[in-house]
Design a protein around this nucleic acid. Structure first.
Lengths: 137, 137
DNA sequence: CAGGATCCAGAAAGATACTG
DNA sequence: CAGTATCTTTCTGGATCCTG
């Protein structure tokens, strides 16, 4: 199976989807991490400026310390962000986006523009679907 | 807080992140669904051609019937794909991408290109991180 | 301040069996 | 063929308390 993406952006073979080992498939191996509830949010935040832990918490409402720590570790592990500890009196840690992380910023931003632009449409679709659904039951 | 994305793609306010109600935030409301393990895979598959249920299963290894059904329902609910039932002898159902879904194809594709291009780098970063990690323990 | 450790309810997801 | 139903296991994420 060789699918051709509608965008003629180059020879990108979606047959990668069908890779036997999920770990070899960039779609699954990379996107699953980016797809996490918070990764994109954090990456975008750090894309605009370096943030300290507390600043990130304030910038991203509703995130718990636990999830912030965990997601930052994951992003660090994947090489998207770097961690810089300052041995000040009270510990302070700054997170920065790396070059690798930065290279994802534009593509991600494109998705966001799209999500933002079609948000109303999506919510309308949902409302319609749910209305039909509850009517039949 | 008004963050400016590094891409000067237009006036996209990342302060949307800080929206009080998560449901109002396109980033969370849309991306959380797209971030699911399978949504992107399915959307890309359907972007290349309409598929029937069974064909999708074959195109996307490792997905269970249950997850495929569920993810398709979600995508249908959000208006990304449409469902067409043919009353043939044995039921056959075809899934197609909608215009709305199609508008996400290019941005998503951009992310994939990026993920694909940097996959090796990411895996190296992981290996390095894990090596340091286990060395310290 | 930044985060580690622990507990725990609920969501997500796999396996299997059944149906029109 | 295209699901649905059910059971079970795994994962997620929030709350809370603790430390250097």
């Amino acid at each position: 199976m060789t699918l051709r993406p509608t965008t003629a952006d180059g020879p990108f073979d979606i047959a990668l989807i069908a890779t036997r080992d999920p770990a070899e498939c960039p779609i699954r191996d990379v996107l699953v991490h980016l797809g996490g509830k918070w990764s994109t949010l954090i990456l975008l935040c750090l894309g605009s400026a370096a943030h300290r832990f507390g600043a990130l918490r304030r910038a991203i409402p509703h995130i718990s310390k636990r999830m912030l720590t965990e997601t930052l570790r994951d992003l660090e592990r994947d090489g998207f962000v770097s961690r810089h500890v300052f041995a000040t009196k009270l510990p302070s840690v700054e997170y920065r986006i790396t070059d690798l992380g930065h290279s994802f910023l534009d593509p991600l931003h494109g998705v966001l523009i799209c999500a933002n632009g079609h948000h109303a449409e999506i919510r309308r679709a949902r409302a319609g679907y749910d209305a039909k659904d509850s009517a039949q039951v």
